[in-house]
Computed example of a mutant assay.
Amino acid sequence: MATITYPRLIKRVRAVLIDWVLTIVAIVISLWVGNAIGVSSAIAKLMLIVLPILILDPVLVTVTGGSIGHHVMGIRVTRMDGVSRINIVAATARFIVKTLFGWFSFFFVLTTTKHQAIHDLVAYSIVINKNPAGLASYDVLTERLAKNDPYTYPAVWRRLLIIAAYGFLYGFILSVCSAIFISETCVQYQHCSASETITSFTLSILLLLGIGWITVRGWRGRLYGGRRRPRTSPEPG
């Protein structure tokens, strides 16, 4: 069996952006068609929104091995064997978790052995390159080998708990900064001065980058409370 290779994170981000644009377009068309044929029920209108979303992600992932964004970027979603497609239950769970966690889910791609996001871990799926032979070397990633790792790591639940705790503390600090430098008028009524707009944008970027840094460092056992430890070599004899 061919060696499994994984795409860079930027390819997965581009695939999500493509899917996001296509989903919005599909929803607008779906609602327009529904309005044209006289759909008036609230439930029916809700279905006009939900169906395009489900078709463009979990259904396509199950039937074709990826969303339109995945195919455009030359990547596909498979089971852990790198060959079989995931079923509709796993694809739906994957989509729900990806939606709930948003960009935070993708930070795990930078540190997990098989370059998996949180939604991949939940669905027992991986994202691989379709045709790695035609790609540049920097676009072809291999599994992160742990057998020569000189460290032992805390349990997964403990690392996740540490990441959540640090993330909450960091978010609280940024919230305090926001309360100090951004007026209530700006927050509630969106009447912001130029400096408040810049400050708000800066805090948003810092939140995203900080959560990413905390996630990567926490998963690698580099945060206090969940630090990795050097392996103890067995004594000779």
Rank of each mutant, 00 (worst) to 15 (best):
residue 113 T to K: 15
residue 53 I to K: 00
residue 146 A to E: 12
residue 142 T to V: 13
residue 70 H to L: 08
residue 75 I to L: 09
residue 97 V to G: 06
residue 69 G to V: 00
residue 226 G to E: 04
residue 1 M to D: 10
residue 213 W to R: 06
residue 146 A to F: 02
residue 18 I to M: 10
residue 85 R to Q: 15
residue 170 Y to N: 06
residue 150 P to E: 09
residue 105 S to E: 04
residue 183 S to A: 11
residue 118 I to G: 00
residue 76 R to N: 05
residue 190 Q to Y: 13
residue 160 L to N: 14
residue 200 S to N: 14
residue 213 W to T: 08
residue 196 E to R: 09
residue 127 V to I: 08
residue 55 I to P: 06
residue 166 Y to Q: 04
residue 110 L to A: 15
residue 40 S to R: 10
residue 115 H to G: 01
residue 42 A to R: 09
residue 96 I to N: 10
residue 103 W to S: 10
residue 76 R to V: 02
residue 149 D to F: 07
residue 121 L to W: 13
residue 162 I to G: 03
residue 207 L to C: 05
residue 61 V to C: 05
residue 126 I to H: 02
residue 196 E to H: 09
residue 8 R to K: 15
residue 96 I to Q: 08
residue 169 L to V: 15
residue 116 Q to T: 08
residue 207 L to T: 11
residue 63 V to R: 04
residue 66 G to I: 00
residue 146 A to V: 01
residue 159 R to Y: 10
residue 211 I to T: 07
residue 183 S to P: 11
residue 145 L to G: 14
residue 26 A to L: 11
residue 148 N to C: 07
residue 67 S to N: 11
residue 221 G to K: 03
residue 121 L to H: 08
residue 180 I to T: 09
residue 78 T to K: 02
residue 227 R to F: 05
residue 221 G to W: 05
residue 28 V to H: 02
residue 168 F to I: 15
residue 82 G to K: 05
residue 96 I to P: 11
residue 50 V to Q: 04
residue 127 V to D: 00
residue 54 L to Q: 01
residue 18 I to Y: 13
residue 137 S to F: 06
residue 222 R to Y: 09
residue 221 G to E: 02
residue 186 C to V: 03
residue 6 Y to P: 02
residue 210 G to E: 07
residue 56 L to N: 14
residue 202 T to H: 04
residue 109 V to H: 08
residue 73 M to T: 02
residue 183 S to I: 03
residue 82 G to H: 03
residue 108 F to G: 04
residue 134 G to I: 03
residue 19 D to A: 10
